[in-house]
Design a protein around this nucleic acid. Structure first.
Lengths: 132, 132
DNA sequence: CTTGACATTAAACTCTAGTTTAATGTTATG
DNA sequence: CATAACATTAAACTAGAGTTTAATGTCAAG
């Protein structure tokens, strides 16, 4: 079992963030010591990793809470959780497509500015360079 | 020239957002009509598109403002703008790698829940299924 | 048994990125 | 020239995701 500080180090998160997640209902599974200290098992760390994964897909905390509640409910929520991950898959695919388009524009702009820099002026991109 | 409403329609943004960007110094190039109305040229729309592109890379508004100021300054800021796009390229590459890892986990979870759903219980994932 | 490094909480605060409101001005159309 | 549909501003408000503070409790080491 880990303390909140250890869990924070493993997750590379501030302890205050983990407390905030707990307060938002994301960590209903976390146990407490006799003196009221949070105790994190390996399984709990695994759930924290899943939470961070969902967060990295842009999922808001409210929806992650719903997922955590479903996990608590056991097999009766399998369908909801399955649907949720399918939706996430779609969202991530869309993010990848968006990011690819963005990457192309940024790539073009890198070329644009490298060329402009070589010429000393952005004016090279205005028209075909004239001779003479 | 477009009104703010037309620009908003083209960009698929609320007009209030465009006014907010202007207030934050992202649109120093936007002109005004005699009566003080913002007027957007095709070039301005192009800059708005660039702003949205930078935003989609997660760039904060303060940094986008710096870019917009550099554009205003002309050729003397070519090096800074080039550097900025190279940094953005790196950031986007990292985002793509992160997203790929996330996609793999989500994909695994889709399989995990589809399998669990078929079995009627998550328990199938605890160990090798026993016979008899 | 005290000191330091942990832990707890509620509540206040911060930051980012807008949105909404209210009061007012402009312009195109019937 | 009245009306509707635009536009302007400053200022207040909101939401989301934490962070910070203050007061207090716990525990291990010297």
């Amino acid at each position: 079992m880990y303390t909140i500080k250890e869990a924070a180090e493993i997750m590379n998160l501030p302890a205050s963030t983990i407390r905030y997640y707990d307060k938002q209902g994301l960590l209903p599974f976390v146990g407490r010591s006799d003196s009221g200290y949070r105790t994190f098992s390996e399984t709990d760390i695994g759930m924290l990793r899943m939470i961070e994964c969902l967060k990295s897909t842009g999922m808001p905390i409210k929806e992650i809470r719903q997922f955590c509640l479903w996990v608590q409910q056991g097999d009766s929520s399998l369908q909801q959780r399955c649907d949720m991950f399918r939706e996430r898959r779609k969202a991530v695919q869309e993010q990848m497509e968006q990011l690819k388009k963005t990457a192309e524009i940024i790539e073009y702009k890198c070329w644009y500015y490298e060329t402009a820099l070589a010429a000393g002026t952005e004016a090279v991109h205005r028209r075909e360079p004239e001779e003479g």
